[in-house]
């Protein structure tokens, strides 16, 4: 981790619950960006987020980039005949007037080639590329390996 990222991580972990922050780009709202702690840097990390399209034009998430991983990719967990696999998702549709979730057991960002192990309480940026709206960067909270999502309803942020 370089000095900038280290400093950014410290600042971000000082102000808790970035996952509850909302970022907008055009008609898209991006929120609840979170990840799970990893054991070491050898295993892939994961990235979850919620995107809402309030406009009247369909869009699509076509890629992610992050300094936290050398090979970030979009995946979809598919269970067919009881067997789980996670093929590469070329594009995740974000239809007009709808919300799409990258969430456990479905679409997710797969963060391969982690620069460092992801530790609970850390935070790192992920840039999302949309077919129409362009690029937007969100801060991702690293929650525990056991977490099922950020708890944004809670007060005290």
């Amino acid at each position: 981790m370089n000095h900038f990222l280290l400093a950014a991580a410290l600042i971000l972990s000082a102000s808790a619950a970035m996952a509850c922050e909302t970022v907008t780009i055009g008609d898209l709202t991006v929120e609840h960006a979170w990840s799970k702690a990893t054991i070491g840097a050898g295993r892939p990390g994961v990235f979850y987020v919620e995107i809402t399209n309030t406009g009247s034009t369909d869009d699509a998430l076509v890629g992610i980039a992050t300094p936290a991983a050398g090979m970030p990719m979009l995946h979809e967990t598919v269970v067919q005949d009881g067997i789980a696999s996670m093929p590469h998702a070329m594009s995740i549709p974000v239809p007009a007037g709808q919300s799409v979730q990258l969430s456990p057991g479905g679409y997710h960002g797969m963060l391969m080639g982690l620069t460092n192990a992801l530790k609970e309480g850390d935070s790192f940026p992920v840039t999302l590329s949309f077919e129409k709206a362009g690029e937007v960067t969100v801060n991702v909270d690293v929650l525990s390996l056991r977490a099922e999502g950020p708890d944004c309803a809670d007060a005290g942020q």
Binding site: V46, M86, G105, H108, R146
Partner: peptide, 9 residues
């Protein structure tokens, strides 16, 4: 990173 920790959680 996805199915297994989710199941264990």
């Amino acid at each position: 990173p996805d199915v297994c920790p989710t199941t264990l959680s």
